[in-house]
Design a protein around this nucleic acid. Sequence first.
DNA 1: AATGAATGAGCATTCATTCAT
DNA 2: GATGAATGAATGCTCATTCAT
Lengths: 203, 203, 203, 203
Amino acid sequence: MKAVAEPSTARGRATRQRILQAAEECFARHGYAEASVAEIVRRSSVAQGSFYNYFESKAAIFAELIRSLQRQMTDATREGALRAAGRSRVEAEVEGTKAFLEWLAEHRDLHRLLHLIDEADPRLAVEFFGGFAKGYAEGLAEAMQEGEVQRIDPELLAFALMGMNHFVSMRWMLWDRDGELPPELMDDFARIIAGALRGAAVR
Amino acid sequence: MKAVAEPSTARGRATRQRILQAAEECFARHGYAEASVAEIVRRSSVAQGSFYNYFESKAAIFAELIRSLQRQMTDATREGALRAAGRSRVEAEVEGTKAFLEWLAEHRDLHRLLHLIDEADPRLAVEFFGGFAKGYAEGLAEAMQEGEVQRIDPELLAFALMGMNHFVSMRWMLWDRDGELPPELMDDFARIIAGALRGAAVR
Amino acid sequence: MKAVAEPSTARGRATRQRILQAAEECFARHGYAEASVAEIVRRSSVAQGSFYNYFESKAAIFAELIRSLQRQMTDATREGALRAAGRSRVEAEVEGTKAFLEWLAEHRDLHRLLHLIDEADPRLAVEFFGGFAKGYAEGLAEAMQEGEVQRIDPELLAFALMGMNHFVSMRWMLWDRDGELPPELMDDFARIIAGALRGAAVR
Amino acid sequence: MKAVAEPSTARGRATRQRILQAAEECFARHGYAEASVAEIVRRSSVAQGSFYNYFESKAAIFAELIRSLQRQMTDATREGALRAAGRSRVEAEVEGTKAFLEWLAEHRDLHRLLHLIDEADPRLAVEFFGGFAKGYAEGLAEAMQEGEVQRIDPELLAFALMGMNHFVSMRWMLWDRDGELPPELMDDFARIIAGALRGAAVR
DNA sequence: AATGAATGAGCATTCATTCAT
DNA sequence: GATGAATGAATGCTCATTCAT
């Protein structure tokens, strides 16, 4: 009943992109529930019906946006980690985080989207954060083998690190206007991350 | 923009409580947007109009729920920290976290509410997490003075720790059915927290 | 989620009636698909939302209309048959049909509704015609016992008679303006019915 | 209001047929309102726009289907009646009905279409049933002249017989899965028809 | 002959909130 | 204090049809 085929002409692809772009902006501005398909189509100068030629539903376009976000985030983080090639795993991890935060700073709309996932659909949150954590945990497990990171449950560590990132970026990059993590804080943050990776006895 | 007077009779207070209770359940079950005043009203066996005798709006009752949540969370954490009286600040911090997670496990509805704040109203998130972090950071600042915790920006550390808690509890206490953090993970988590508190050089 | 409670005040009952009345007119005028809830509420001078305080959906109000129609049709037919009390079953059957057609003539809107059932929902058609036929067939079965009606499958006979009524009333009461079956035709129709009831050998 | 030219090439004719075939299936499956041009087009592997190269509108293709249905039904009935050549008019009538029902059983999709006419457009119903009745009534009028059928209004008799067919086939051929009228019922039905044709006094 | 992108009016339904009693 | 009827703006979505190639 739905169909929604891939656009086969250049014009179609362009329209699809326009809608996608407009949706990103609308969601970022208003949140998921408050954003309306009506506004998305207005911003993309497309008829209401055209939206549904390309996307099954409001939820579907949001999910697509999120999946693309996931890809980009993963790539940015990975590339960042490569900057520390040859150095320690901890350094690589910290570089990855830095790169990730830099990427976020340059993609404020996408950053906001990140905080709407749960609102849009809790299952999407599971897919997104769960999926991201999986890749993250694998890397950490390797590092544990090599003895550079404390030997604990890798998934736990992954979620802990993700939570830190999430809250720190929320506080300094979303709540604050300029959208960047102050450089001096970045150093402090690096020490926190390093501490969490190495671990410490509780006494 | 109606009066919404404090209830003056016992009956009034009881009604108010019933509504509050029903609202907590509804929000927990359906999320903020999906929860409807109509269902809250049905669950509390009260007429549609009565709701607005006690609360200004759906947003208002949610905010009230959240403020009470904040109080309870703070108390639970503080009490937990007291269990480590006489021991180190790090130990106190870990005990506080444990107590907090135990409290969460016993109040699943409230735990869910915690994840709806952003959905309901981003400004409420600022108030809630920002407020919580403030108290948290003060305690950490003291600990830094005493040299038990690495000397970095206390608010940053507060947010990092809050984020860890948030994500770890989300993963193991919300996504998983039983709603408890497996005990063996708790020990690992304690090492992560301790590491973050003490900090480590990046190399 | 739906609720739709019985109205408890006189005002509520009145409103419900107004909507029901307006719906009958709208469906009669435009058919099921073409009739819009918007017009129904306009005609009943009620807000769009109020409709859904009383009826679950467009389909639901139509079904309710039909069920009431079924009751009224059955009653009218039965009362007609009683006019022939003391006379033969065949005469009673014919009188019932006459009464039924008279009733139809006086309730043109309901007559039109009768022809929308299938359009609205095929399952409703099964419920309606099937239900009606059941009662009909029971009466015929009795008459067969008494030897006044040919001994064949009663349900078959019921459907055949219903079909005759349906098409004859469609042709002369719906398609023609005045909405009445010309009296001279009624006599002919009576002979057809009598013939069908008594049956005849095929040669 | 487009041109809709007759297809001039073999390819064009083939496309037109494919669409017609797909439409029949769609209407049969979903009814008139629920069937969508989009699905018809999908089923016939044709572009959305091509549909309108061959048919003016959804209503137009349905009407065309119905007109062809009328032709086929008339032919089937007529051929059936010829099987009783030499026998009585009543026998011919019964044979015609049998043949008609057999034809219906073999064309279930078309049978369903028959019940959608009113849904699609009441005026089409007048054209279809009215037209069919006309031819039917002519035959009956002849039979009345010959004294084999009771002398009453031929059109009335035609509609009565059509109604019987309609409801009987609906009950046993549409509502029931297998789509055939049980043979034992056919004999009963023949007696009903014969009775209606011969007529009986009402007493 | 065929394509598929684009259109936009139209629809049923939801829901927080207000009002009159 | 409590009721429940009434409101109406807003929303996501459908679908027959047209247009430009």
